[in-house]
Design a protein around this nucleic acid. Structure first.
Lengths: 154, 154
DNA sequence: TCTGAAATATCTCCACC
DNA sequence: GGTGGAGATATTTCAGA
């Protein structure tokens, strides 16, 4: 993954991070490049793995999820936890971590009873400690502005 | 935020979550709808706040960030923490939480020394406990598949 | 690697249902 | 809310530098 980003690449990444539906022509217009040049750069950034994909940021509440929680869990078997996470659509992310617990689960739930159910289910796999999210910043939004990106990654 | 999603909406959300650069025609082709119909639905979903935006999923390593960490912090003033988060591009997310600490910071760093520097800086604001992320699943990727979305959110 | 031009495909209105 | 068509834009490909 050694890929040297130049100023055009960083600008393109910043624009796509903010709005990935921008057309190549529009991007080109903003950074003073023609659309084939932008298209080729985006293709290379994807190929190099710098861009992993393009997604929509969805509002969890609009999807029926009322709040989020972080569950710290200590397990014997990570496989059992992986399987649990894969089979529960409430899981936003699962991180294996260092520290007093060995994994951190980020989940979205519909109601307190729903959270209770998940905690109870997880209880069969390991020992949990749960924190409810009161408010968030940068949740899935644009981050790491291109202006501040290192010139030589790695 | 009361918006009733029908089967078309859910399919559109699933497709855009997976690849937000799909054209309206292409989406229409896959769900058997014409492009103006898809465009209109996407416009309404954005207007209703169900879709908050479209972004690129970038590889943190390619951007020069070697690993991630979660920092639990207990602070007197949330304002000071908010300001700290806003001024540090390493911050992926900041969550105010319940539990033994009052906030959880998700950050990306270039090297252990870099992390140490951030922890030291945070030490002036509150008391921290840090966990390093060893591996992640679903980090920023597609989630909440449309097939499993509730028919009536809320 | 970029540009410019040509062919193809897409988006955006609009009238109609 | 959806369709279908027309005009304006966009994407893609390629020759040339």
């Amino acid at each position: 993954m050694s890929f040297e980003l130049d100023a055009y690449d960083r600008k393109i990444l910043a624009l796509l991070q903010e709005n990935s539906r921008l057309g190549f022509s529009e991007i080109g217009r903003r950074i003073h490049l023609t659309s084939p040049a932008v298209a080729e750069r985006v293709r290379r950034l994807e190929e190099a793995g710098v861009i992993e994909g393009f997604g929509a940021r969805l509002n969890l509440r609009a999807l029926g999820y009322t709040f989020e929680a972080f569950i710290n869990i200590t397990v014997e078997s990570h496989d059992a936890l992986d399987a649990w996470a894969a089979s529960h659509h409430e899981v936003l992310a699962l991180h294996a971590t260092t520290g007093s617990h060995c994994a951190l689960l980020h989940i979205a739930v519909r109601a307190p009873e729903h959270l209770q159910e998940l905690i109870k289910s997880l209880g069969k796999i390991g020992k949990t400690t749960t924190s409810i999210v009161l408010s968030s910043q940068c949740g899935g939004r644009a981050r790491l502005p291109a202006d501040q990106l290192p010139k030589m990654p790695g």
